[in-house]
Design a protein around this nucleic acid. Structure first.
Lengths: 324, 324
DNA sequence: TTGAAAGCGCTAACAG
DNA sequence: CTGTTAGCGCTTTCAA
């Protein structure tokens, strides 16, 4: 049997409501009594029962993160930051890597304070429409069912294309999942194509068919069988950039001398790639902060701040070079 | 206000205890009534309250995974598998990426059914000794405080050294964290050194000082300033191997022609590296299965099966070559 | 087959 | 300051 406040009450010769107050550091208990009770509690190895407490207070101080795809570097970095921000706010984050539907259902049953949804594949209208607790989605909403913190992906691509054009490139390809179902991916592709179109440039798609570094690697291998190569490539994510870099190097193509690269994402790891990568994206910490703050506001009942789109920034490193 | 079984009871004109039975598909309720109640529940958008249910049944069907370091590929793969096995057993996994102490404390307060601890840095005696729920640790126990599923790391290193020696190598280095605090890392290093010693070979340590691919990358760069190189390297993990491979390639050293590599870990990703990597380790699915099964047994109250150490296997791919 | 009632561990009025 | 008591939402005897 685990020890409850009643056990402590018995051991301390007080009523269990006094124990409750003492353990919650209520000013309604004499410091002396309080000290004595806390001591007894420690002696007995008391651990408060989360469920019982939750049931009566209706507060869990817990936020759930739905994150079905753990094996992606850029998202790992973001999740780590989000966890820090949540911890700093005095709350706790728990995480589910199950399918989004099941994860949301779980958190919803748990009645935790809020849900952060990192998932872009499923249409949001497949989610229960009334989950009872605030849910904030990250990415690109399919429909406006839930509040979303997004990124101006189109602008990110515009920045990348602009940068390349300004240093003389014309033949600029985009490496990523082409015409896929992921909405973040779609937005990037569209942004790229629009940026090219409005400059009268021909878009060139390199379909990686997947989001892992090795998917990009294979895609570049296929590209290299073509007669001509682009002079610049925009990679749709950190992992894609890493795979691209790897394949190019293996084939003796030097970045940035032979070919320039800009990656999407804005995480410190980009600086530590083989060739420090010029990149475009919302700084990860800004993103994490915005996500947490918005969700907390939602939890506090504020309706505001939804549908925001954060502004990406260009960070110049060493993977681009003017076209001679 | 969220809807409770009382609301359903009112809407269905039955007592709320009948609703409870109906929703739990009890045979004590007339099928007709049951159907009617379930229908009302759906109409009202009822979601069972996990805490309330838990409080009375004392079962959560939930297992918590403590996993403070999400940014490591081999562990991600393992976690994904563990989640699958837990799901298959009809339970749910939740995850915390907080510091192990806080995470264990959280899960302990939640009174979930069991804890899986993926953390090797902190001494286990820093953990509360009486957490009230079964905890299974993965790795190398510092002390025998908790049951552990481990790996025969020493044997893994023995296998790797043996393989190299059999194909003619003598100058075999080990790349990993040297004399670090992580117990899994320590065990590998010791295994390597023992395997070398007993063959009268001189051990050569390449200290990566960290566990990321880029740590390995830098370490290899440092190594390359030395006058002579080993002919073979054993890498202590997937990430280390990837970084090693990258640095070698960048410096024009071909694997396996100029230098042979064996990696620790046994995950499918190894086959997809630039050079498919020969590796040694417990197959990840076996590991995941063992972890989940052992924890479930512990939850069922069986004391058995603890302190097990799984046997690693050698998987030959293309990163080794006989020494001429 | 259904309902009434007790109680899981805890907090929060309210009374003393 | 401390104790009494009424629930939080649910399951589970026990009666009807």
């Amino acid at each position: 049997m685990t020890v409850t406040i009643k056990d402590i009450a018995k051991a301390a010769n007080v009523s269990y409501s006094t124990v409750s107050k003492a353990l919650n550091d209520s000013p309604l208990v004499k410091p002396e009594t309080k000290r004595m009770i806390v001591e007894k509690a420690n002696e007995l190895g008391y651990t408060p029962n989360f469920s019982a407490k939750h049931l009566v207070t209706r507060r869990t101080n817990t936020i759930g993160l739905v994150w079905p795809t753990i094996e992606r570097v850029a998202l790992s970095a973001l999740v780590t930051r989000v966890n820090q921000h949540i911890t700093n706010s005095g709350r706790t984050m728990i995480l589910s890597i199950n399918h989004a539907l099941e994860a949301v259902e779980l958190f919803s049953r748990m009645r935790i304070d809020g849900i952060l949804l990192f998932e872009e594949e499923i249409p949001q209208d497949k989610l229960p429409n009334n989950i009872g607790i605030p849910l904030l989605s990250y990415g690109v909403p399919a429909i406006e069912q839930f509040p979303t913190v997004g990124v101006q992906h189109e602008l990110a691509m515009e920045l990348a294309v602009k940068e390349f054009v300004e240093i003389g490139h014309q033949s600029i390809a985009y490496a990523g999942v082409i015409n896929g179902t992921g909405r973040r991916q779609q937005a990037k592709q569209i942004g790229y194509e629009e940026a090219m179109r409005k400059r009268g440039l021909k878009s060139q798609r390199i379909d990686t068919r997947g989001l892992d570094a090795c998917d990009a690697d294979s895609a570049i291998e296929r590209l290299l069988t073509e007669p001509t190569l682009p002079t610049a490539i925009i990679c749709s994510s950190y992992d894609i950039a890493i795979g691209t870099l790897r394949a190019l190097r293996r084939n003796g193509i030097q970045v940035p001398n032979d070919l320039s690269l800009i990656s999407y994402d804005n995480i410190p790891q980009l600086a530590e790639a083989d060739v420090p990568l010029t990149a475009v994206g919302v700084p990860i910490d800004k993103l994490a902060k915005e996500l947490v703050e918005t969700l907390l506001a939602l939890i506090e009942g504020e309706q505001a701040a939804t549908g925001r789109k954060l502004t990406p920034e260009l960070v110049r490193r060493n993977s681009t070079k003017p076209r001679a």
